[in-house]
Design a protein around this nucleic acid. Structure first.
Length: 376
RNA sequence: GGGAGAAUACCAGAGUGGCCAAAUGGGGCAGACUGUAAAUCUGCUGACGUACGUCUUCGGUGGUUCGAAUCCAUCUUCUCCCA
């Protein structure tokens, strides 16, 4: 993996660059749609690669290991071929499931034992196993196995957790170095900075991950219950340490506003379920603000979903029609909203990139953030 | 013409003397959702008040009772059965 910075914003930490991966180039800043089980829910690859123009999407190690399993993935020739997605792919390690499936898992020094949310069977995830699974999946970018503690974690817990994540990180890199890709292209491994909302832990963690001389660095454990201001502060702390010339990936974030704030602070990559999940639940993100399409006020609004939108759904369908579909529980509603939201997120980062290149990012960001969280 | 049964909130439908402004479901209205156990979850849904609460409701009317959606009389409407 290669990263080339093309423009730096003079007034902030924002940068615009290009990440080169085996399956293609990724302009940064970038938003990566989440496709946990090998599918960005409700969206055809045709539309992902078309109007949405997603440059890279996510898969999840934990979920793909449980279903369809590594045997099938290897027989298929990896997730790219299995799912017919020929652009770059990043897999999360299962570290987030240590957080989100906290009731179904037990952490030990060796790893994390999950009780499958599907059938209750037990599965031990070790750092080594997690790297192996990601080899089977064949992601361009694999993530280290970490523990993602909740945003409310106490200092003592956060410190212990970080120590464990660091041990796991070392084992991930050892495994990565001692194994080869299965499908003939390189897979890079990204370490993850943890440390909750504690500045000294974040600094320590950032210093530690830096010693692995990775192609890129992720910031994890944010947007998990702590106030947004804390998150922004942690990003600043961490990015003051992480190498300037490598991409920074803020995991699991976030709202459109979160993205702009983080871009301003030097973050290059994002992923979040928000555009898809919230879309399925009737929430639309637009350049003018947020729409809850279920609200009665859209009942007879026959204007396009988003006149400023970049996807075909924005021009084709009206708010009133989408509201009807959403309330009727039609699956088309989820598809339309997902396509719209993803197209908006990709538009947002694409435009941020242009503004950085033009040197007008600060002003644009100010205008945008004033509108993004409006309730329409 | 005779007989039986039923009428409850937007709809369906429990409740059959006080714990009932009335279960539950649907519908309606609003909210939540951040490396996806989520096409999911939560709240409200008679009126007025933030709230303790007060007032008006269970087809109509009139009774019985300390107290009625619940018991009685009667009227209305509907359903079914027999002629």
């Amino acid at each position: 993996m290669d990263f080339r910075i093309e423009h730096k914003d003079t007034a902030s930490g924002a940068r615009a660059g290009v990440i080169s991966l085996p399956h293609g180039d990724v302009p940064t800043p970038i938003f990566m749609p989440v496709g946990t089980v090998g599918s960005v829910k409700g969206v055809f690859h045709r539309d992902l690669a078309g109007d949405i123009d997603a440059k890279i999407i996510l898969g999840n190690t934990y979920h793909l290991y449980l279903r369809p399993g590594t045997d099938v993935l290897e027989k298929a020739g990896g997730l790219h071929r299995f799912s017919a997605w020929d652009r770059p792919l990043l897999t999360d390690s299962g570290g987030f499931q240590v957080f989100s499936l906290a009731q179904n898992r037990k952490i030990t020094q060796g790893g994390c034992e999950f009780r499958s949310h599907i059938d209750g069977s037990k599965h031990l995830f070790t750092p080594e196993r997690v790297v192996d699974i990601q080899r089977s999946i064949g992601a361009d970018i694999m993530m280290a196995f970490d523990e993602c503690p909740p945003g409310t974690a106490e200092y003592a817990y956060a410190a212990r957790s970080l120590a464990l994540t660091n041990q796991w990180l070392e084992r991930c890199f050892e495994r990565h170095a001692s194994t080869r890709p299965l499908y003939g292209y390189e897979q890079t491994l990204m370490p993850i900075v943890q440390g909750c909302v504690y500045e000294d832990l974040r600094l320590k963690s950032a210093e530690y991950v830096k010693t692995f001389n990775a192609d890129g660095y992720a910031i994890g454990g944010l947007a998990v219950g702590e106030p947004a201001e804390e998150m922004y502060r942690m990003i600043e702390v961490v990015n003051s340490v992480l190498p300037q010339d490598r991409p920074r990936y803020l995991m699991g974030v976030g709202t459109p506003e979160n993205l702009l704030e983080a871009i301003e602070r030097g973050v290059d990559m994002f992923d979040c379920v928000m555009p898809t999940r919230n879309g399925r639940n009737g929430m639309l993100f637009t350049g003018e603000g947020i729409i809850n399409i279920r609200n009665k006020k859209w009942q007879d609004d026959f204007s396009p979903i988003d006149p400023g939108g970049t996807s075909f759904v924005d021009r084709t369908y009206t708010k009133a029609y989408l509201r009807h579909l959403t309330i009727a529980g039609e699956m088309l509603a989820a598809e339309i909203a997902s396509i719209h939201n993803l197209a908006f997120y990709l538009w947002l980062v694409r435009t941020a990139r242009e503004k950085i290149a033009e040197g007008t990012f600060a002003g644009w960001k100010k205008t945008m953030t004033g509108k993004l969280s409006n309730r329409l």
